[in-house]
């Protein structure tokens, strides 16, 4: 049993089953909080995927909003209501949005990459605010989706969306883990450390970076789709840079050593957010800023590095 769980696929499946069972016992507010943690966590997982290649996107709001708006429009205008289909569609639309920029951005590293992605997301924000047909700065509402052809009853809506978020994020987490361990995943890490060497070994760094950007965009779109279904409302704020900043915050808090850590970090942020809005409603940004400074100062490799470190030490002993 223990050996079986050491395999990422089975560990992921077991984790999903556990969370699905646990969900039945959770109060509604906590279910919602977990759903949002999962949705936002997927977006941050995309940033972690980019971070492994050495770049940080400061504009994932672009694909988060792209996926979210696409899903809301499909539901309202095209009558597509199936939640699974919408989730997937959100990812695909976001990936298609990222595609034309991938080749250009793949040439940039460091702060340039961060700033250019930030600029892109702010362009979308500007467009959304000015587009009256999409509700301008107020956004618009989306009706509740169906799942596998069934309507979702009011009493169950919280749990169903939670379950969807758990399954989708679980599957993407497993896929991400497989990708991180793959040949391409290892080369991503090598690019982070020594790009020149990778080119001199015959691999194209810009193609790897472009592919990573599109994969991260897919994840951002999926996260956006899940978030809008849970919130029932979308607005340009999805593409605002402080939204992107929170995704980056979660990736920094998680570090790039563990996939699971990303979701833990996302959950921590949601907890802090809901407590701050209850107790310090006017200084939530300040709380976040101070929290971020503390993490960068004392845990620069993220919480993931802590238990990956434990594991390594344990293996070293046995």
């Amino acid at each position: 049993m223990k050996r079986l769980l050491a395999h990422p696929v089975w560990a992921g499946v077991a984790g999903m089953a556990l969370l699905l069972a646990l969900g039945a016992a959770l109060p509604r507010w906590l279910l919602f909080l977990c759903t949002m943690s999962a949705a936002n966590g997927i977006v941050s997982l995309g940033i972690v995927l980019l971070m492994r290649g050495g770049v940080v996107s400061f504009g994932q709001g672009l694909v988060f909003a792209g996926g979210g708006y696409a899903v809301a429009l499909m539901a309202n205008k095209l009558g597509v209501t199936d939640a699974l289909l919408l989730t997937f569609a959100g990812g695909v639309v976001a990936a298609l949005m990222a595609l034309p920029f991938a080749a250009l951005l793949a040439r940039y590293r460091g702060i340039f990459f961060s700033m250019l992605t930030l600029a892109l997301s702010m362009v979308l924000y500007g467009v959304l605010v000015k587009t009256e047909s999409l509700g301008g700065s107020d956004g618009f509402n989306m009706s509740r989706p169906t799942i596998l052809g069934m309507r979702i009853a009011d009493a169950w809506s919280g749990y169903v969306l939670y379950a969807l978020a758990v399954v989708v994020s679980g599957v993407l987490a497993i896929l991400a883990r497989i990708y991180f361990e793959s040949a391409r995943g290892l080369v991503s890490l090598a690019i982070r450390e020594n790009e020149l060497r990778v080119e001199y070994l015959g691999a194209s760094t810009s193609r790897v970076m472009a592919a990573n950007f599109v994969i991260a965009a897919f994840m951002g779109g999926v996260g956006g789709a899940l978030a809008i279904m849970a919130l029932g409302h979308i607005e340009p704020q999805f593409s605002y840079w402080t939204t992107s900043g929170e995704f980056v915050f979660v990736s920094i808090l998680a570090g790039h050593y563990s996939v699971f850590a990303v979701f833990v970090a996302s959950f921590i942020l949601e907890l802090v957010r809901s407590f701050s809005s209850a107790y310090f409603p006017n200084t939530w940004q300040m709380v976040l800023g101070i929290f971020l400074l503390i993490v960068i100062r004392f845990l620069p490799r993220g919480i993931g590095s802590v238990w990956v470190g434990w594991q390594a030490r344990k293996e070293g002993r046995s």
Binding site: I178, Y179, E181, S182, A183, R184, L186, V187, L189, A190, R197, V198, L201, G202, A203, V208
Partner: peptide, 15 residues
């Protein structure tokens, strides 16, 4: 890394 880079198309899933 050296082995992976020379294998032509980099695999997304093969370890």
């Amino acid at each position: 890394v050296a082995a992976a880079c020379g294998d032509g198309a980099l695999s997304f899933w093969r370890p």
